[in-house]
């Protein structure tokens, strides 16, 4: 019974939502809208589980004095203070500290982490773009064509390269992406079908 009921829920919910796509009637729209709002709300409850997991892992680290445990204290301090700043009596998400932590801690960290990609893309190109085989050479040349597409110092070759680059984006790129998308579409549909039919149930765990 511990497994049958969830599988039944999956089947009923899945079939309902799939059929709903074809039913324009207002009744079907109502239920669809409810389900959408429900999912958002359940997500917030799930977040409590996440925070709990984070607390658990961090406190274990501190208790056992595992390697790098002082940083777990930093993590907890950040977590707890941010939760307190976001509480009603502090002014909620509009409070001074909450906004300043967002603007002067989260934004710089986020943007800097993202900007690391500039370095990593260079090192990946340096490390991996080697003409080892025919396929690797194709990869390499096509990357070079794109990287030179707006170079103003190539003269007429630059114009030719820009045309070639946009041709690559419009023709082979279009074809390949479409082939991949069609494949993905099929794979997704197959997986969704397996889930609804209860064939794919590893996400359900066991007892």
């Amino acid at each position: 019974m511990k497994k049958e009921i969830p599988l039944a829920i999956v089947f009923v919910a899945g079939v309902f939502m799939a059929v709903q796509f074809f039913v324009p009637h207002a009744g079907s729209e109502w239920i669809y809208e409810f389900v959408m709002e429900w999912t958002i709300i359940i997500g917030i409850f799930a977040l409590a589980l996440g925070i709990w997991s984070l607390l658990r892992v961090s406190t274990t680290k501190i208790k056992r004095k595992m390697e790098n445990w002082p940083y777990a204290v930093v993590l907890l301090a950040g977590l707890v203070s941010m939760i307190i700043f976001g509480m009603g009596f502090m002014g909620g998400v509009e409070s001074y500290m909450f906004r300043h932590f967002f603007n002067h801690v989260m934004i710089p960290l986020h943007a800097t982490m993202f900007s690391l990609l500039a370095f990593f893309i260079a090192s990946a190109a340096f490390r991996a773009f080697k003409a080892r085989s025919a396929l690797a050479t194709v990869l390499l040349i096509s990357a070079l064509v794109l990287m030179l597409r707006f170079n103003p110092y190539l003269g007429p070759v630059g114009d030719l390269d820009a045309d070639l680059a946009s041709w690559i984006l419009n023709v082979p790129n279009l074809a390949a992406k479409r082939a991949i998308i069609i494949g993905i579409g099929l794979g997704m549909v197959a997986t969704a079908l397996k889930v609804i039919l209860g064939i794919e149930r590893s996400y359900m765990g066991s007892d």
């Binding site: 977040l47 409590a48 996440g50 765990g205």
Partner: peptide
Amino acid sequence: DPIVMTIAQETVKASYYS
């Protein structure tokens, strides 16, 4: 994602059992 975590825990636990 916390829900993904929950499901992943179930999945891994089940694999260890089996």
